[in-house]
Amino acid sequence: MEESHIQGIPVAQAGIHAGFPSPAQDYMDGIMDLNKELVRHPAATFYGRVVGDSMVNAGVDEGDVLVIDKSLEPQEGDMAVCFIDGEFALKFISFKDPGKGGSNAPKPGVSYNILGCKDLWLLSGNPKYKPIHITEGNDFTVWGIVTYVIKKIK
């Protein structure tokens, strides 16, 4: 046994009041739990740390924490953590050719089967990085969809 991690259990949930009723219990309902707000699917939610400047124009900077939900199906415009050619990369998912304008633009909110979809582009939030057209030659998966970005400002 080593490096075991300690997690606090909110008193009202711990189910440990064999003796005294806890006076704190009455107030627990009113607590705004950030976990509940930021994590829709606890079993599928992981976190990532941003490295580099690929999303600066989207307001995501180095050091920010990403809340990543692996249960979600990628949709047009989603910010996603992709695994491409041996590295995790933060990209916008697009099913339309950015060179051609929006002629074959899919409807927003419609979900696409990423594996069945032949045409897929990964866009960054920084003009320095060109769009990547995913072909069968790429070692590529969508690892998870970013649902929140946590930024430390102080």
Partner: peptide, 14 residues
């Protein structure tokens, strides 16, 4: 790393 249990050891996303 402790990818899923330690804030200092998260996956790095470029």
């Amino acid at each position: 790393r402790l990818f899923s249990t330690d804030w200092n050891e998260l996956i790095e996303v470029h």
